[in-house]
Design a protein around this nucleic acid. Structure first.
Length: 424
RNA sequence: GUGGAUGUAGCUCAGUUGGCUAGAGCGCGGGAUUGUGGCUCCCGAGGCCGUGGGUUCAAGCCCCAUCAUCCACCCCA
């Protein structure tokens, strides 16, 4: 084998591609109900957008970006996430001039240079939503509910929603300081990694998996108890709205999101059947992002859902998506003369909405029937010398094995009656 | 970037202490059924044993390197 797909990339082949189509189609449908509209931004942007938008000290920017210089000597980066681009587009196209809030969704590939493992790839796919221009806690609840509803539509309903508030520029710095002091006091008890994190990013210590660290963390000051009154009110309103629509949540004060721009609400949906990469989707509010990349202040909230992880989650629970299998009709041909007739018939049947297939390898009748069987054809239309002489075709019901002979002139109308087609 | 495991037919995998033309099941093609799928039986096609070097009379097997895949760490979708 001469070539491989680049590391961390995957070909999406049938029948998997049908699952993807199903997911995409459901997404368009549901998001439309919530009145979110699709936005399609470029797959690459100027590197600086992500540096500013995601944050210089995040792992994504520090070591995971696919960055290159183009022929015009510009630094370009394949998008590692969707939010920064959406915000850029919102500002660039002056969408703030329209009635707010603006509710966008997107769907497509993202790129991060990482070692692949279960549920993690270099090219992966996210679908996400962004609601810009409102700080209403009801909108936070809508976003969360939308994500959960989508998962429910795919048959996933026993996942855990982790919810937290990470405060704002008013209250978070004071909390971080408080946390840092606490951690410094317990420095010796922490793992090596966390000792370094105290200075660099103390919030990170909170989700360390090390047992010793967990013990220290259990007694650490909690962000939820250190919110300013605005943030505390916002958080409690989000919870009330979630309760109104009967969404169960688990307040997890240790939930900190990896990207710098988050404020207030933070959430993740985890599936513990997935192994290490168990976050199916995550998101939160990012009231600080707009100023970071473009100027005017603008509240926003959104989530991103990993499609590969969604598929893993479905697989872990043995959920089969209702993807159409096989064909309606298979035309079995005997002889060259019949083949010509059959080819014309094939065209007519397809034009009339029947999924129809024919043999292109000149195989025996037995093999053609076998193919029909493999393709789960409902009926096989058999055309041979006998039928041609009578201007008719033999129709075989592949489930029952019964056969009838009908005139070619009546074939289309007869087949319409025979085939149970919902979309015809 | 670090660590561990694994690379043999399209797929899942056997292959003994190194020893003849490298095997099975499934799948694929043909036939038994001169024009009929599923069950059964027979036959067949299909392998640079991941790649490159080394040891040896002899390497799928041992050694080194390399690439890839999987899993985990870091972090995240």
């Amino acid at each position: 084998m001469k070539f491989n797909a680049p590391r961390g990339t995957n070909d999406i082949l049938p029948p998997d591609s049908l699952k993807w189509q199903y997911i995409e189609q459901k997404t368009h449908q549901l998001f439309s109900n919530y009145n979110y509209q699709e936005i399609r931004t470029p797959i690459f942007e100027y590197t600086e957008l992500f540096q500013r938008g995601i944050g210089e000290v995040t792992d994504i920017v520090e070591k995971e970006m696919y960055t290159f210089t183009d022929k015009g000597d510009r630094s370009i980066t394949l998008r590692p996430e969707g939010t920064a681009s959406v915000m850029r587009s919102f500002m660039e196209n002056k969408i703030y001039g329209q009635a707010q809030p603006t509710k966008f969704y997107y769907l497509g590939p993202m790129f991060r240079y990482e070692r692949p493992q279960s549920g993690r790839f270099r090219q992966f796919h996210q679908l996400g939503v962004e609601a810009l221009g409102s700080n209403d806690p009801a909108l936070d609840a809508e976003i969360i509910s939308l994500g959960l509803r989508l998962l429910q539509d795919f048959g996933l309903n026993d996942l855990t929603l982790h919810l937290n508030s990470v405060g704002c520029s008013e209250c978070r710095p004071a909390y971080v300081e408080k946390l840092k002091n606490y951690l410094l006091a317990h420095r010796a008890e922490l793992c090596e990694n966390c000792q370094q994190r105290i200075e660099r990013n103390p919030l990170r210590v909170l989700d360390c998996k090390n047992e010793a660290c967990q013990e220290v963390i259990a007694e650490a000051p909690k962000i939820t108890e250190n919110l300013c009154s605005d943030c505390a009110d916002h958080f409690s309103d989000v919870k009330k709205y979630l309760e109104l629509v009967e969404i169960d949540y688990f307040v997890n004060p240790l939930l900190v999101r990896g990207l710098d721009y988050y404020t207030n609400t933070a959430f993740e949906i985890k599936d513990n059947a997935l192994g290490a990469q168990d976050t199916v989707f995550g998101g939160g509010r990012y009231n600080g992002l707009a100023e970071e990349i473009g100027g005017r202040s603008l509240p926003g909230i959104g989530f991103a859902l990993g499609i590969e992880r969604l598929l893993l989650s479905l697989e872990a629970k043995d959920i089969e998506l209702p993807i159409p299998a096989g064909v309606d009709l298979y035309i079995t041909v005997i002889g060259e003369k019949a083949k010509r007739k059959a080819f014309k018939l094939l065209d007519q049947l397809r034009n009339n909405g029947f999924r129809t297939e024919i043999d292109y390898l000149g195989r025996s009748v037995g093999s053609q029937m076998k193919s029909a069987d493999r393709m789960q054809a409902e009926f096989t239309i058999i055309l041979g010398e006998d039928e041609l002489n009578k201007d008719s075709a033999t129709i075989r019901n592949m489930k029952t094995g019964t056969e009838i002979e009908i005139k070619l002139s009546n074939l289309l109308t007869e087949m319409k009656q025979l085939v149970d087609k919902e979309d015809l």
